[in-house]
C-alpha cells in the first residue's frame, strides 16, 4: 500500500489552508500552552508539590471544584426542566424565553458579576428578603455557587434541546401502548436516551464553572481560605510576581479541564456509536 497523507481531491487550496491552520494554531494556542508546561518543569517536584498542597491553595481547589459541582448539578435539574418545557410545550413568550437562555453566555462576565452582587447583597432586590432568614448570599460560598449556576445554565439547556427534539415520539407511544405509565415512560424510555446529552451538558457546565473568574470575583468577597477561588489565587500570585507558583496552580486546573474535555469527547463518541449501531 502506498503511503498517502491525503486522499486525492479535485478541490484546490488544501496545502494553503492546512498550512495556515497549523501555523496559526501553533502560534496562538500550542506555543503559549507549551510555555505553561515548560515553566512548571522549572520547578522541582518538591517545590511544585508544596505549592499545590499549601492549605490556602487546597482550600481554593476545594471551593472551586465543590461549588462548580453543586452548580452543575443544579443546572442539570433545572436545565432539564427548562429544555423540556421549551421543546415540548407551546405557550406565549416561548421564543423570547428560548432566546434569553443564552443571556449568561452573551453577557460579559464582569457585568454578570456586579449585577448578581447588587441583587443578592444585603440591601439588594432579592438579598433584602433573604437577610431576615439569616441567609447570606453575597461574599459567601453560596454566592459563588449562585454565580456559577448562572453562567452554566445555557450549556445544559443547549445540549439537551436537540436531544429532546430528536426523541422519537413513537417509542413513547409504543411504551404507552405496552402499558407503561407516564412516569415509567419517562424514567425507562426518555431518560436513558437523553442521558448522554444530559451528562455532556453537565460536564460542560462543570468545566466552565471551574475556570470561571469574572462573574465570581465580585460576589465572592475573596477571603483567603473561605471564599477565594483558584483563578483568583493565580492572579494574586502573579501580582506578587510569583510566576512559578501561579503556573503550578494553573497546571493543575488545566489538566483537570483536559480530563473533563476528554470525558466529554468520550461520552459523545460513545453516544454517537450507540446511536449508529441502532440505526
Amino acid at each position: 500500500m502506498r503511503f498517502a497523507l491525503k486522499r486525492h481531491s479535485v478541490l484546490p487550496g488544501f496545502g494553503l489552508t492546512l498550512g495556515y491552520t497549523l501555523l496559526y494554531l501553533s502560534l496562538i494556542v500550542l506555543l503559549p500552552l507549551s510555555a505553561l508546561f515548560f515553566k512548571s518543569a522549572e520547578l522541582s517536584m518538591a517545590e511544585f508539590w508544596s505549592t499545590v498542597t499549601n492549605p490556602r491553595v487546597v482550600a481554593s481547589y476545594k471551593l472551586t471544584f465543590g461549588a462548580s459541582l453543586i452548580a452543575a448539578t443544579i443546572n442539570a435539574v433545572f436545565g432539564f426542566a427548562v429544555a423540556w418545557t421549551l421543546v415540548r410545550y407551546r405557550f406565549p413568550g416561548r421564543r423570547l424565553l428560548d432566546a434569553i437562555v443564552d443571556l449568561p453566555f452573551a453577557l460579559p462576565t464582569a457585568v454578570s458579576g456586579i449585577a448578581l452582587t447588587a441583587i443578592y447583597s444585603q440591601h439588594g432586590w432579592i438579598g433584602q428578603y433573604l437577610e431576615p432568614w439569616g441567609v447570606k448570599v453575597a461574599f459567601t460560598p453560596l454566592g459563588i455557587t449562585l454565580a456559577l449556576t448562572f453562567i452554566g445554565l445555557p450549556f445544559v439547556v443547549r445540549t439537551l434541546q436537540p436531544a429532546l427534539q430528536d426523541l422519537d415520539r413513537e417509542t413513547e407511544e409504543a411504551a404507552a401502548i405496552l402499558g407503561a405509565n407516564r412516569f415509567q415512560t419517562f424514567t425507562r424510555v426518555i431518560i436513558p436516551v437523553v442521558l448522554p446529552a444530559l451528562l455532556t451538558g453537565f460536564a460542560l457546565a462543570f468545566a466552565r464553572a471551574i475556570g470561571e473568574y469574572g462573574s465570581v470575583v465580585f460576589i465572592s468577597g475573596n477571603m483567603p481560605m473561605r471564599t477565594e477561588i483558584a483563578s483568583l489565587l493565580i492572579i494574586s500570585k502573579l501580582e506578587q510576581h510569583d510566576t512559578a507558583g501561579a503556573t503550578a496552580i494553573a497546571l493543575v486546573m488545566l489538566l483537570s479541564s483536559f480530563v473533563l474535555l476528554a470525558a466529554i469527547n468520550g461520552l459523545q463518541w460513545y453516544a454517537g456509536r450507540r446511536h449508529h449501531g441502532l440505526s
Partner: peptide, 13 residues
C-alpha cells in the same frame, strides 16, 4: 477548555 485566567497567564509566560 482553558480557563480565562490561565489563558492570560500563558501569554505572560
Amino acid at each position: 477548555a482553558v480557563s480565562p485566567v490561565v489563558s492570560g497567564l500563558i501569554y505572560m509566560l
